[in-house]
């Protein structure tokens, strides 16, 4: 190792150590909602993720050890499917049958006969069905979705709650009203605590929470696809 390498290593170490300490991991949240986080990672229909879109990432189903050539092929196909299906997104709420038909039709059109559509049974009570595109396993996984129109309405609500301070009851009522008007007749709502902080408005979000305001904090489907919507506040 040259002097330059030694100095570079020392400087890189110092720089890396200067990165602020991350927030502690909320393990119970990870253990409970691993599936939802995967949903964030592979969600196809972006409109359904609302505030959680800060962590939207393409599917990358890791299967160690990876074969670079196969992985590149999978990634290319994954991108192709994502791009194709994105053009099909119109905000509609699809049933399982409709979603499977659409996905199969698009896979056929793309000539991806070796891809499959998988239903792992966790969408039984889902209001709508979406799909996660997973290149490494060459499949589209059926996933619970609240539907694009509901998500759009929630985007507007989230912005409104961020800009105007509402107390707990007001925020909960606003959320309930938005969901009912969007076609969710008996929404399950949970209030309290802070679950996620959106990256694109973190400062504003935390400032509002600090004032005692209550904010929209996303939603999670349970093991059967039934959603709980959250209001955050302290």
């Amino acid at each position: 190792m040259s002097d330059f390498d030694r100095r570079l290593r020392s400087r890189l170490q110092r720089l890396e150590e200067s990165v602020p300490d991350p927030q502690p991991l909320a393990l119970s949240e990870f253990r409970r909602s691993g599936r939802q986080r995967r949903r964030q990672a592979v969600l196809l229909l972006a409109a359904t993720i609302g505030l959680l879109s800060v962590t939207s990432l393409a599917a990358l189903a890791m299967r160690p050890p990876p074969d670079p050539a196969q992985e590149a092929k999978n990634a290319a196909e994954e991108g192709l499917v994502l791009q194709d299906l994105a053009t099909q997104e119109d905000g509609s709420c699809r049933s399982s049958e409709d979603a499977v038909a659409l996905f199969q039709h698009r896979l056929n059109a793309l000539g991806l006969d070796h891809w499959s559509i998988r239903d792992d049974g966790r969408t039984l009570d889902a209001p709508c069905i979406s799909g996660g595109v997973i290149g490494d396993s060459q499949e589209i996984l059926l996933m619970a979705s609240m539907g694009g129109r509901v998500a759009s309405a929630l985007d507007e609500l989230a912005l409104d709650l961020l800009q105007t301070c509402h107390n707990r009851d007001e925020a909960m009522e606003r959320l309930r009203g938005t969901l009912v008007q969007s076609g969710i007749p008996e929404p399950q709502i949970s209030v309290g605590g802070v679950r996620v902080v959106p990256n694109d408005s973190a400062g504003e979000y935390l400032e509002q929470l600090g004032k005692g305001c209550y904010l929209y904090a996303g939603a999670n489907p349970n093991q059967t696809g039934r959603y709980t919507w959250y209001v955050a506040g302290r």
Binding site: V19, P22, F30, G34, R38, A202
Partner: peptide, 19 residues
């Protein structure tokens, strides 16, 4: 970006636990 890094690291941690 340390904030984005934390976000991606959390996603990676969740992915690792799933798999």
């Amino acid at each position: 970006d340390s904030h984005e890094a934390e976000d991606v690291a959390q996603a990676a941690f969740a992915r690792a636990l799933e798999r």
